[in-house]
Amino acid sequence: MKFVKALMLTALVSGVAFSSQLLAADGNQITPGLQSVEVTHSGEKVIITRASDKGAKIPGTFAKVSRHCPPFCIQPATVAAGVETVGELEVLGYLKRIGDGDRKVLVIDSRTPDWIIRGTIPGSVNIPWNKINVDLQGTFEVAAEAEGVHDILVNQLGVQDVKGNLDFRNAKTLVMFCNGSWCPQSSTNIKTLIKLGYPTYKLKWYRGGMQDWVSLGLTTVNK
């Protein structure tokens, strides 16, 4: 009898422990059916999850809410006609496609390298906004072609140069983001790309950017 009671107690404790593990796992899922997304960043495998630490807070870099406008004015929900505004789940979907080998998609961090070291989305590539737009005053109001933008289009974005004319038929789908809904860097780049002929249906805008990403406890990397 003592053996049976001991066995039942062991099973009960094991069951509680197992249930606790399940609850812990469920507690930081991205969605009920999505635990994580695996990507490659700078040649290394990174698993994107949500923070499991119940005491985790938004990093100080992105905790600031006061931003001088201009240039840091609140962006509209739609950056341009035909360009889809996306959220975190859509970004994760594109990252999963890239992780599965889809070379027709790029998730682009439009910020300058000094911001990248403070944290970026794993699986994204950095094409600084000022490589496409020139604005030395930092107002983001100048929509001029930067030196080298042609090379970026052809060498990184899948655009073809056919006898001096840009052919966008095989251009990659771009998911662009910057610091947040107050940051005009990625939206300015999107508008410039449209002027250069980039198809709007191949441009996606993650308006919430890094501030929304970290507020949801999603994984970041610092390079």
Rank of each mutant, 00 (worst) to 15 (best):
T112Q: 09
R118G: 11
P128Y: 00
D135C: 13
K96S: 11
G82Q: 09
A143G: 15
A63F: 01
P70D: 00
L95E: 04
A144L: 08
A144K: 14
I74Y: 14
V79H: 01
D109K: 03
D102Q: 10
V134N: 03
N126D: 13
G138V: 09
V125C: 13
I58L: 07
V107W: 09
P128R: 02
A81T: 01
I116R: 01
W115P: 02
E84M: 02
I117K: 13
P128A: 07
D135S: 05
Y94F: 13
D102P: 04
I121Y: 09
T78F: 06
I58C: 04
A63H: 08
R111Y: 06
E141C: 13
P59G: 10
W115C: 09
L136M: 10
N126S: 14
N130E: 06
K104D: 15
T78C: 10
P59D: 14
I132P: 01
I116G: 03
I98T: 02
G60M: 09
I74R: 14
G123M: 03
D109P: 00
A143W: 10
L95C: 07
K96Q: 05
A81P: 00
A146D: 00
P113C: 04
R111E: 12
L106R: 06
K57W: 06
C69F: 13
I74L: 15
N126A: 02
I116S: 07
R97Y: 14
G148T: 12
G101D: 01
A63I: 03
V65D: 06
T78G: 08
H68M: 15
A144M: 15
D135I: 00
E147H: 13
V105Y: 03
L106W: 10
K96V: 01
I127R: 08
G87V: 08
K131P: 07
A80R: 09
F140H: 04
G119E: 05
I108C: 05
G123S: 03
V125G: 04
G138T: 03
G87I: 09
P128T: 08
T85N: 10
F62Q: 12
I117W: 14
A56N: 06
G60R: 05
I74D: 14
A81W: 10
I98M: 04
L89A: 05
V91L: 08
A143E: 12
A143R: 14
G82T: 00
W129P: 11
E84W: 12
S124V: 04
A77C: 02
P76C: 02
G138I: 10
L92I: 12
G93Q: 00
G87Y: 04
V79G: 12
K131T: 00
D114S: 13
E84Q: 02
K64Y: 04
E90V: 00
T78R: 04
L92M: 06
G119L: 05
V142Y: 15
A80G: 07
G93E: 04
I108R: 05
V79S: 09
F62P: 10
G99W: 07
G99K: 09
G60L: 00
I58T: 07
L92W: 05
L89N: 10
P70I: 03
W115A: 04
R97M: 05
P122F: 04
F140D: 11
I117A: 14
W115R: 13
G60W: 00
I117N: 14
K57T: 13
G60K: 14
L95Y: 11
